[in-house]
């Protein structure tokens, strides 16, 4: 019966794998994020976390299927994904350092086309979330502190009206308090219904917000479990090193 069919996941990867030359960085894996869900991918360096996000974003060649809200998007090029609402905050923030904060945010809204009113509304929402960005609107991005740059990276991603926000180690290089502030904002966004796929090494921070956790090691999923279960163990080492 059509009515009893389960809702398609926000994003679902099926048998996704990727390699750099002969080195398999990601072995065939399955992963899904439900609509409005906060999912964290944990793993040590070299586990394949960044490769996973880059493969989903079509920034690297991969095998397997990727579905977004039930639609097969495997063959779509990267630039098409932002228009669908799949937006990624890259490791190292990926800002356009010589441009101003304002220009970076405008580029975030690139997929919204020429709809000035819509873009202006997005600006207001981002500035409400990160008031500092309003103050620094005319400042060159490279001249901001690490925390402000991360705010800008998240703000720029939000300008695109994402339905799924993927973040690659947003806490990297930030002071614990600053990182906590950024992750708290992500939690707030998730409570408003934004689906989030977060890749992190700092488990305690990431687990505070996640509903489900995937643990990656050597390019494979070692465990998939609700976040509260992993919290009770707290010793993640056994998931990391098999």
């Amino acid at each position: 019966m059509a009515g009893s069919e389960p809702m398609p996941a926000l994003i679902e990867v099926d048998g996704l794998s990727a390699s750099y030359g002969r080195v398999a960085a990601l072995k065939p894996m399955h992963l899904r994020v439900e609509d409005g869900e906060f999912v964290t991918v944990l793993g040590p360096n070299g586990a394949g976390k960044t490769t996973l996000l880059r493969a989903i974003s079509r920034l690297i060649a991969s095998r397997g299927r990727i579905r977004f809200k039930g639609r097969d998007i495997t063959a779509l090029p990267t630039h098409h994904l932002a228009k669908l609402g799949i937006v990624m905050v890259q490791e190292g923030r990926g800002l356009f350092g010589e441009m101003t904060v304002y220009e970076n945010l405008l580029l975030g809204a690139y997929g919204l086309g020429h709809d000035g009113e819509k873009i202006e509304r997005r600006f207001e929402q981002v500035f409400q979330l990160f008031p500092k960005l309003r103050e620094r609107a005319s400042q060159v991005a490279a001249s901001m502190s690490g925390g402000e740059q991360q705010m800008l990276a998240v703000g720029r991603a939000l300008m695109a009206e994402p339905k799924l926000l993927m973040l690659d180690e947003p806490s990297l290089g930030l002071a614990p308090k600053v990182a906590e502030g950024i992750l708290d904002t992500l939690g707030e966004l998730n409570r408003k219904g934004l689906g989030i796929l977060l890749v992190e090494q700092k488990a305690p921070l990431a687990l505070k917000l996640a509903r489900r956790v995937y643990v990656l090691s050597s390019g494979s999923v070692r465990a998939e479990l609700p976040a509260h279960e992993i919290k009770s163990h707290y010793d993640l080492a056994r998931f990391y090193f098999h």
Binding site: S57, L59, P77, T78, H79, H80, L81, A82, K83, V87, M88, Q90, G94, L95, F96, G97, E98, M99, E103, L106, L107, G108, Y110, G111, H114, R156, A160
Partner: peptide
């Protein structure tokens, strides 16, 4: 302009620009 910003984004990072929806 929007066009020029897209060009300058490509100049900094092609992957980053593509991820924002820019057809490189």
């Amino acid at each position: 302009s929007r066009f020029g910003r897209a060009l300058r984004a490509i100049s900094t990072s092609e992957a980053g620009a593509a991820a924002l929806g820019i057809r490189i």
